[in-house]
Design a protein around this nucleic acid. Structure first.
Length: 242
DNA sequence: GACTGCTTGTAACCACGGAC
DNA sequence: GTCCGTGGTTACAAGCAGTC
């Protein structure tokens, strides 16, 4: 509450309102506090950003001044999952080996050479090539085969699982565009997302079948109970089922 | 507590088939 | 031929029990 009238930074008019917005020494009418990019009214927003005498909503500030992914050079949104390597920041899906393109997982070892990310195996290849044989032929054409038996397992976060499961309930068989959208939302690669949906469909089928077998078993048990003194063959089939 | 071996769940992969 | 789905398999990671 001010005793002297202050000038609104946006409209230049004195502010006679009971309340005003004061950001870094500049004042606004509540009705004048808008994002300078999208013009969204920020009066009731939980936060806003102020830079070079311009006000921004959260999203536009991130777009304009936010960190950029060191791989794709696109802006990193506040909601994006990221990985950090030294002072570099990557989208989760962009944090992949520059040689083989494989997305790197949490806890996995990697190398950072001249702002390029390398998985452990390709980094070791590079080191080996430099120190041992300069070119033995096998690594140049298909060096990945050497490490093909080493399968790297992605560990999903709880949030990623929630997003995937929510989408699975809506559509268990999403098309390519939906897969890309879900991949973007989770920060996973499209391939990993696709495999997750494949496995989930298989799991669902499996779990549908298991209860039926259980029902069958329960049915047999109830039959057994109904025919209280049945023959030994019944009990033997019972044990087989279990 | 540390180590080992076994079991279980599941991500990733492969082979195959169908649709286009 | 390419793309995508399914079913089956492989390999990884975590949990658990047993042993020292």
């Amino acid at each position: 509450l001010k005793t002297e009238l202050r000038i609104c930074t946006a409209c230049g008019e004195p502010i006679a309102d009971k309340y005003l917005f004061d950001i870094d020494g500049c004042a606004w009418h509540g009705s004048c506090l808008r994002c300078s990019v999208c013009l969204t009214l920020l009066e009731r927003q939980p936060s806003c950003y102020f830079r070079d005498r311009h006000v921004y909503c959260r999203a536009d500030y991130a777009k304009t001044f936010g960190a950029k992914c060191s791989k794709c050079c696109r802006t990193i949104a506040a909601s994006d999952w990221v990985r950090k390597a030294r002072d570099l920041v990557f989208h989760l899906a962009c944090f992949s080996c520059d040689t083989c393109g494989r997305q790197l997982s949490t806890g996995e070892q990697f190398a950072l050479i001249d702002d390029k990310v390398m998985c452990r195996s390709h980094y070791m290849d590079t080191v080996d090539d430099g120190s041992n044989s300069s070119d033995d032929g096998c690594s140049s054409s298909d060096g990945y085969n050497k490490n093909k038996s080493k399968r790297v397992r992605t560990t999903f976060t709880e949030e990623q699982i929630q997003i995937l499961q929510a989408n699975f309930q809506i559509d268990s068989n999403p098309d390519g565009q939906d897969l890309e959208r879900i991949a973007l939302a989770t920060g996973l690669s499209k391939r990993v997302t696709q495999v997750w949906f494949q496995n989930s469909r298989a799991r669902q089928k499996k779990h549908v079948h298991v209860p039926r077998a259980q029902d069958l078993f329960n049915g047999m048990r109830s039959d057994l109970n109904n025919n209280n003194h049945s023959t030994n063959s019944c009990s033997s089939s019972n044990s087989n089922t279990s």
